[in-house]
Amino acid sequence: MKKPQRANFSFYLAILTLSLIVLLLFFLSLILGSESISLGKIATAFKEKDYSSFVLTIILKIRLPRSILALLSGALLAASGTVFQGYFRNPLADPGLIGVSAGATLGAVIFSSLSLFIPIGAFFGGLMAASFVYLIAGGSKTSTDSSRLLLSGTALGVLFAAITSVLLILKDKEIYKMYLWTQGSFNAKGWNILFMVLFPSLLSFFLMFLTTKKLDLLSFGEKSAETLGLNLQGTKLLCLTSASLASASSVCAGGTIGFIGLIAPHTMRILFGSRHKKLLPLSMLFGSSLVLFSDILARKIAPPMEVPIGIITAFIGVPFFLFLLRRGRQDG
């Protein structure tokens, strides 16, 4: 009886620690930003309750929605990465791999050139891409081959990127704006974006939590999982829909931010194993921490300029990940 208890204990300890880290980073995200405002000034501003003062304006109207979006985005990316990696049984699966990011970018570019609201274009572009992949590669009842899905996703992703490039060349004024958008940023993202993505995000979290047991079964291989009673078609639909919804929502919130969907679940898997019921919440917390931390850096590196967050996630994520891979290899 001892082993399960100890395993559970370390899991709950990890959840607690990560939650505290997320809270700390969230708090830091509120008090740190491009404008250096001392803690004393913040405390005074809250005491005086002058809501028109620029300190409270910046903290409550700019930094607060932005921090929530960063936290949410990190969780969405990590969760969708977890589900994609679990479903494809491929530790390199990333929300971008299935073509969702490329589709979202295409949607964003189309909406931008028509002067429509870009995040909505991104959201529907991402969903459209996921539907295409599912229709083309996974439509028939007999076909559940996950590598076929992955390949189609990659191929379609390349096609969407090519179409995007053509559009950008034809409308060359859009090029620079879209280049920045594809680097990812929470700049100028406020309450309206948050309200837009809140429902789809929460729905996707709910659906992804439903996939956990199925993903565990799937890890034994499709044939074995089927003999154990898993409905392959239903699982595919659930996994891909929920993860694509999460991925599209995160692109809508912050543009295309790479590496989180790859690194967060993978790191947690190396440290805590592959049981998805544990892996999912751990990845989400870790993903939120990474994105919150990156967003703070994005604002603090060269104020008042903001560095695109995708660049920062690459710089901190990749070495961290390589370090963990090496450690994993030495132990195993």
Binding site: G33, S34, E35, F54, T57, I58, I62, R63, Y176, L180, S185, N187, A188, R299, P303, P304, M305, E306, P308
Partner: peptide, 14 residues
């Protein structure tokens, strides 16, 4: 930089 991406809060603060 010539055309920097700037922070919204800096616009407000300045």
């Amino acid at each position: 930089a010539a055309y920097p991406v700037v922070s919204e809060e800096s616009i407000i603060a300045r």
